[in-house]
Design a protein around this nucleic acid. Structure first.
Lengths: 110, 110
DNA sequence: CTATTATTTCTATATTTCTAGAAATACAGT
DNA sequence: ACTGTATTTCTAGAAATATAGAAATAATAG
């Protein structure tokens, strides 16, 4: 997950307003997850569109699906998200006081 | 920056492999910034393409530009990045142990 | 095995995005 | 003013994405 293309793929997955809304909704719903139908009602997204976005989120491991009867339950994949944020913070992008030792060290280790 | 569309815009900006490479390069270069020409050499991206991506990164305040003679110096905007990561962590998405108090509280405050 | 509910896949369309060459602009030096 | 260097804007084609209706599939109940 340290791989830059993987990071970009995940960022891209939640870098779309519709998908970010979906993902946030799932995060807030917690570990119980939410069936597609309820996401659909709650966010007002047509089934086929929703399915398309969920598939993409699933493909980058930001959500997980599990069947329960006729319903499919989607849940946020917290580990995937934490890994992503972790990558941003320490491999790449944030919490790096510009020109800090960290930044300097990194410049040399490249 | 708490606005979900703004968050999505920024995620989208670095959710592209080329732009993520550019941004990471600028982050690692630190506060001194880098002129376009050197980014171009270093990453091997044609000028017009590079300019296009830099413009997009600039539009979401993830980089800043400053003219120095004939050169334009680009620098990572650390504050913007920190704000983004902050949003992910506490308004939306990460470091939220599923079904934690935090998650519960959030569910009610919606 | 038929009906019902839930969701996905198929298909099509409209729109956006990525890429990069060519032309234009900006600045500095002479 | 003229030249060179740096970078952007213009333009256009190709590829990817977003959207959503219609048809197909999956699972359960009767």
């Amino acid at each position: 997950m340290t791989d830059i293309d993987t990071i970009a793929d995940r960022l891209n997955a939640i870098g779309n307003p519709t998908r970010l809304r979906i993902f946030r909704f799932l995060v807030r719903a917690g570990d119980n997850g939410v069936p597609v139908g309820r996401i659909q009602e709650e966010l007002g997204i047509p089934g086929s569109t929703l399915s398309h976005h969920l598939k993409l989120l699933d493909s980058v491991d930001l959500v997980r699906r599990e069947r329960k009867g006729t319903s499919l339950i989607y849940r946020a994949q917290f580990d995937g998200m934490r890994a992503l944020v972790g990558s941003l913070v320490d491999e790449c992008c944030a919490d790096m006081p510009a020109n800090s030792n960290v930044a300097q060290a990194r410049r040399q280790s490249d």
